[in-house]
């Protein structure tokens, strides 16, 4: 029940993110059809219908069953649309020290890298980067925010389209 709710919240966050991106960038391919629906194979399709991020427990980089389910869908999509390259961004919450969190974010990005490449996504398409605790998406003073920040985000790069 709470998982369903959480998935909805996460999706809502994802949609908002896409709107911001859409407003900020001139797009090289249409993301929305004439009727407002998401175009399959577009970056927005990946964010909205696949899910671009997975979440981690405190100080952990192991993939939960929910994370693996998301990454299975990511791998399927990336194998179908093989013209895209991706950047995996690893992040940590603010309740750790800076240097360690940089390495922890890298460890989380690496976990996603390893999983996707094991699922057939060519390693030459994947780049990783860690932002440590420098790029939170939620800023409240509670674990409801920190848990959203302990994440790895798969960013689909337009360059391949």
């Amino acid at each position: 029940m709470s998982n369903v709710l959480f998935a909805r919240v996460a999706r809502l966050v994802a949609v908002v993110t896409v709107c911001l991106v859409a407003a900020a960038c001139s797009q090289t391919r249409p993301e929305l059809g004439a009727d407002g629906s998401v175009v399959p194979g577009s970056g927005q399709d990946f964010v909205v219908n696949v899910g671009d991020r997975v979440f981690f427990n405190n100080n952990q980089s192991s993939l939960s069953p929910a994370a693996r389910a998301t990454l299975d869908k990511q791998a399927q999509w990336l194998n179908a649309y093989s013209n895209y390259t991706i950047t995996i961004e690893g992040h940590a919450d603010e309740r750790g020290t800076r240097q360690y969190n940089i390495a922890l974010g890298a460890r989380r990005a690496q976990a996603v890298y390893d999983y996707l490449s094991a699922k057939g996504v060519s390693q030459s398409r994947i780049k990783t980067i860690s932002y440590g605790k420098e790029r939170p998406v939620a800023v409240c003073d509670a674990d409801s925010c920190w848990s959203q920040n302990r994440r790895a985000v798969t960013v689909v790069n337009n360059a391949g389209s």
Binding site: S61, Q99, I102, A103, A106, R107, Q110, A111, I129, S130
Partner: peptide
Amino acid sequence: GMTFAPRFSPDGQRVVMSLQQGSNA
């Protein structure tokens, strides 16, 4: 790969730092 957490040696002639290598630093 990514390097981070630098600090000088006491004589200022060397810098010690971390290099990220996969899951390990």
